[in-house]
Design a protein around this nucleic acid. Structure first.
Lengths: 156, 156
DNA sequence: GTTGAAAAGTGCTGCGA
DNA sequence: TCGCAGCACTTTTCAAC
């Protein structure tokens, strides 16, 4: 057994390190070390361990989509003709770069997508030309976000 | 007029820098400079400009929620008793840390939330105890994600 | 606005406890 | 396993173009 179901090799220190860097990945290890009263080397060892375990997927620069001209966020409930067409649909949706999230899910929809577009014309183009024309998709329901009030990662 | 509607002070170089760092914020400026055939100082100046303009919101360490014991992602369509209760509901939902995203939106739902929980028991607790008991919420509809097939930022 | 190099700070590695 | 110290690398700054 080389892998456990719950990867709870994390102690309090690990979790505190993650909590800090999940909010701001640019904080230096030395500063984290001071805050948690351990040495910088220890932070380094813990981070390396968590990277190797696959707990840490990497770091990303977070931008403000509206400031670069992407003003519309929409959610899309997708009905497939047959459930078996799921993996094929994923492949096709991967090529539509406006699709930033895609879930296979329970409930009324077969799939659920999050889409970010520049403006209403752009959204219409993505919905009518790009998505509706994919094979296997029966119909879609669109929910447009007028305001993103909360946006954060989980609290450990 | 101190602010334009579209903040298109971004040239190709800015966009290329953002595109690289949006995927991996740990890539050093010197390496980006080599790739884009400019000096490290220029990267620095551009980054500083974009931070001041609010285009860059910061950087985050991206973790794998499943590896730290958060196995369930769900979407929640929320019906409010009155639309005017929106801002009050936001405040209350902010205190529920399992809510990682919240949108005010068009369509059948008043609000739309994304929730991350440890397991089904945890999800049930959040739905039944935390969310249903908030004031102003009429009812909710839950969509459970069985697989997150796509997860990325917008392509500039 | 861009460059190139010097100064300051951070990350990494090995030895000792 | 943790902490300390030295080396390598990166970021930051700045005078000059």
């Amino acid at each position: 057994m080389d892998k456990k179901y719950s990867n709870y090799d994390l102690d309090n220190l690990d979790i505190q390190i993650l909590s800090i860097l999940m909010n701001d990945a640019s904080i230096p290890y030395t500063e984290i070390a001071k805050k948690l009263i351990v040495s910088g080397g220890t932070i380094h060892v813990r981070m390396k361990k968590m990277e190797e375990l696959g707990i840490i997927k990497g770091s990303q620069l977070i931008i403000n989509p509206q400031k670069v001209g992407f003003d519309i966020t929409a959610f899309l409930g997708i009905y497939l003709e047959k459930g078996s067409q799921y993996s094929d649909a994923v492949k096709q949706l991967q090529d539509i770069k406006e699709v930033v999230e895609l879930h296979y899910c329970t409930g009324q929809y077969s799939m659920f997508a999050k889409i970010v577009c520049r403006d209403t014309a752009h959204l219409r183009k993505v919905l009518n030309e790009d998505i509706q024309s994919l094979t296997g998709i029966q119909r879609t329901e669109t929910i447009i976000s007028l305001e993103e009030s909360i946006k954060r990662q989980i609290t450990l």
